[in-house]
Write a protein that binds this DNA or RNA. Structure first.
Lengths: 257, 257
DNA sequence: AGTCCAAACTGGTTGCTAACTGGTTCCCTC
DNA sequence: GAGGGAACCAGTTAGCAACCAGTTTGGACT
């Protein structure tokens, strides 16, 4: 245990600073926002315990009422967990990483196929207009391009063409297996992706690489991945062999109506 | 707390400047426009709280009546949210997640296209083995089949082949516009769907109906829809024209899976 | 060393007060 | 009809105090 006086604890200091910086005039809203920020910025880690409501109220100089309303908001969206009699704690986030949804290797494994990979090309160069658009780059920015042939149980399944801004990844040789691991190392782990699916027909090069005939159907996925702050970090076009691959999506109705 | 005098707050300064610049002579109309601009230019972020009507009125030197009329206009188109007793806040954008279950008509409208439809065939008959599997039917059960050509702005977009168990829908003539409306009337509204996407090439009939060449790429969606209790109510195969249609999916790192 | 119990926590709830906010009405001027 | 002003109603925020009901903890007892 640290022997800091309660008012000196990192959390208290963080909250006080956050409340001073932007106050909307509605205390419990601001406090809820500050707590949320403390969690996302790891001032409060998952499983950590909050000070008691009374102590917290006194430390940041608001009423217990306000502290409770703020905490209630966070409990409402599952960020905090309250237990009568025990202290309130930050919820354990069993967050399934985005890579589980977008990684080719994990996708293959979940289908019971052994993932494999062959490099087609790796290069750094100036961004094309389409890449500038997709990655929100400025004109003249450079990008890193990774082109791979993806296989499942040894059979060619897809051609993957990944583009990453050069300020995130300047050396394509760094990527040996997983692009996501490299991005995570550099603290650019994507948490959200927008994917556009369309159909196309195989051209000469596609046919040669995927061992299919020219004119065979292809499923094209264009995916843009974003970090938590909304910055695009990856733009990937994947050409799946339409005869060997399909794509599963679950849809849910909205609450209203 | 920030120590800005109320009249010095960024919002107030922004509004005063906007009102000075172009005043049409109709105060509440100008103020509404200024507020709208403040929101679009992020002077007011989503979730932010407005000053009270009285304070705002005093700060920009108009009457509370005018402030209220301006706010009412923004509340009307959903930009602001008012709660009796609590302050007025900028609406959180409830942007519809792309994983929402939508009908073809809604989908087209959200793309800014006018949905249209032509019947190809309507019939009731014994379920095929594939239909029995997909809809969890018993052997010998009957199904209702609806085959439609779907258009967007008059252009053929997709061939839709919907299959519904006959105990849900026994007369295909009942469906005039929306199949979902009919299902909702019968309390069989689907709330969840599993959709499989793959690529294919257009055959002779597809090409004729969609006005595309044979061999052109098609995006094939096989969708199974379920009601709240998990009963399958619809099995639909849709052949989208690959050149005119694409499919957007949003992926997110998910909590507590 | 282990058990047990009570004190000292914790969150949950209620009642009250005061100040503030949007909702409404009525009156007035231009 | 737009604009201003005032008064009043009803709901929310915020703070305070007291008390209830669980959990934790440590010390007394065996």
């Amino acid at each position: 245990m640290s022997d800091l006086a309660p008012s000196q604890s990192p959390l208290i200091l963080f909250l006080r600073r956050a409340l001073d910086r932007h106050s909307s005039g509605v205390i419990y809203r601001d406090l809820a926002a500050a707590l949320r920020q403390a969690i996302t910025e790891d001032v409060l880690g998952t499983g950590d315990v909050l000070p008691g409501e009374r102590d917290l109220a006194e430390a940041i100089d608001v009423s217990r009422t306000s502290v409770r309303k703020a905490i209630e908001a966070l409990v409402g969206d599952g960020a905090l967990i309250r237990r009568h009699g025990a202290r309130t704690a930050v919820a354990e986030r069993v967050e399934k990483p985005l890579s589980a949804l977008t990684s080719f290797s994990e996708d293959m494994r979940s289908r019971g196929l052994q993932p494999g990979m062959t490099w087609i090309s790796r290069e750094v160069g100036p961004a094309s207009p389409a890449e500038i658009m997709a990655l929100h780059l400025s004109v003249g920015a450079r990008v890193c391009r990774l082109k791979r042939l993806r296989t499942g149980d040894g059979l060619p399944m897809a051609i993957e063409h990944a583009v990453v801004p050069a300020d995130v990844l300047d050396d394509p040789e760094v990527v040996t297996a997983s692009l996501y691991d490299v991005l995570a190392e550099r603290h650019r782990r994507p948490v959200r992706a927008l994917q556009r699916l369309r159909a196309a027909v195989a051209g000469a090069e596609d046919g040669r690489l995927l061992h299919i005939e020219i004119g065979a159907p292809l499923l094209v996925a264009e995916r843009r991945c974003f970090t938590a702050d909304g910055t695009p970090v990856e733009f990937t076009r994947t050409y799946y062999c339409g005869e060997r691959y399909d794509f599963l999506v679950e849809l849910r109705a909205q609450d209203n109506v």
